[in-house]
Design a protein around this nucleic acid. Sequence first.
RNA 1: GCCUCCGUAGCUCAGUCGGAUAGAGCAGCAGCCUUCUAAGCUGACGGUCGUGCGUUCGAGCCGCACCGGGGGUACCA
Length: 562
Amino acid sequence: MLSNKPRCASLPNYLLMQSIIPTLTELVENALQACAQKHAWQLEQPINIAISPAKNPQWGEFSSAIALQLAKLTAKKPIDIANELMAHLPASEMVQTVNVSVPGFLNFSISQNWLSAQIPQILSTGASYWNSNDGQGKKAMVEFVSANPTGPLSVGRGRGGVVGDTFANILQAVGYDVTREYYFNNAGNQMRLLGESLQIRYLQVLGEAVELGENHYQGEYLFELGKRLVAEKGESLRTAEVETFSKYAELAMFDSIKATLERMNIYMDVYFNENSLFEDGSVWDVVNRLTAGGFTYEKDGAIWFVTTRFGVEKDRVLVRSQGVPTYRLPDIAYHENKLRRGFELIVDVLGADHKDEFPDVKMGVEALGYNADGIHLLMNQFVSVKGQRMSTRAGRFTTLDELMDEVGADVVRFFMLQRDSSSHLEFDLDLALEQSEKNPVFYVQYAHARISSILRKAQEEGYSFENADLALLAEPAEKALLLKLLELSEVVRMCAKEFAPHHLTYYARDLASAFHAFYRDCRVLDSQNLPLSTARLQLTAVAQIGLARALHLCGVSAPETM
RNA sequence: GCCUCCGUAGCUCAGUCGGAUAGAGCAGCAGCCUUCUAAGCUGACGGUCGUGCGUUCGAGCCGCACCGGGGGUACCA
């Protein structure tokens, strides 16, 4: 572990707000139990009760298809079941009305009073209103980026960086104690090639007729570094060892990577050096224990891991015949190290090109006697910009820095989060460059700036924020905005549960849209109607907190003016 | 060959456990600024959800086969 950067404190989460879907689920659950008992329904398995937002306002705000699911089990008509369930629903302050529609949906309308009552709660709790405690304070690690210091970060790595950092934010919001970790290797073949590449570039700058080999790093950045080296050291390194160049390049590349990450608002807690696993003997310790457990054998001078025992078609090499381990072995040792440090949830954010190493790691720690269920893969597919694929080795890439120079960190982060990470991402440079409503980042940020502007103006003109009569908030747009705001906690939980941070950007856009509709229909500041102004000011303030929370979880700024 | 991810509107993509009429942004079309930021809003247009079988009361979602694309299939990482 190289360094331990301080990062901003995670938000406390102590207040578990009563959120809508879990509450409705509980109501239906109670009704179901009552009906099942009364009519002796055979519910051998626990029924999964789904509550989803209604697709049409005529059905209220939330619906459940539970009666349709139960039709077969009970041999009754869905519509009858729904009516029966409705009759047994416990009363709740949250629910205004319940009705049944064909073919048997149970529809809920949320009470306006209950909704309004959430406003003071959010105002007093702040951004942590939407937190939950699903993680129960357990230790979680998100390992991401993990690029070896052989070159500037590519756009592809940037996706892993954004997805990993955002997912870490999400885990904190659902109550985990999160560590962000970067795993790297500064020994071995890659670093030797890097050193050779720099050496050749350095000599080229000095006018020598030397050329890069096919395996060397072709990127222009090493030529630039060579020039820098000449400027600093002159010709003194003409006969220097490769190691001198390797070390110099490594430090320079790491500085550049860290600067890039910082620019993207990413701060690692731990930089973990793969080499430490060799130095403390844990790599060889892993081999010995696997061997003692009967999980290895020797063939052709190499040590093989019996992965076929876990149902894989081929065994894998752990230690090459020359005695050098493959990447697989330190990876297993590394994950054992993570488990030994007490992490109960371990998330590896990997690119699609590294996906296949993941199962080997899980099999490895299982063979060592651990339960690997807490280790998860968050794979992200490749990124392309204008059809060009990234390849560091070939030196034909757009670096993250170049991309941020073009469009800014906020746009990069938001765009990287707009796709399911298992889908390919085509970075639309033209759209990203658009400083207008076409660009979804500006759309969301604009809503926040608009809100800020109203609140500023209210303050300047002396409008009261206190003692609001929130029952005055009766417009459909007001209700819709509140409902959308209250959805955030569910969105965050879903992101965590599904390892899918992209839902956040969709939510942010929906919330911005709900605010814009409110802005259109409901004038906030009206000197002729001060009570209504105060009520709407409170709602506006809550919208600001929610929008900022969604943006900040994405690692995107929430500007006060634009 | 095998494994895996993807295939949804002209383009880029969402689609919560299998539920009501499949959604959004962009592009293109038609409108809305003496009032809190028009970086906004409204309307219309746009679909054999890759193809074919199957399971189901009900399939974009589940199963099988096929087609097309990405990634992997190393004693590289």
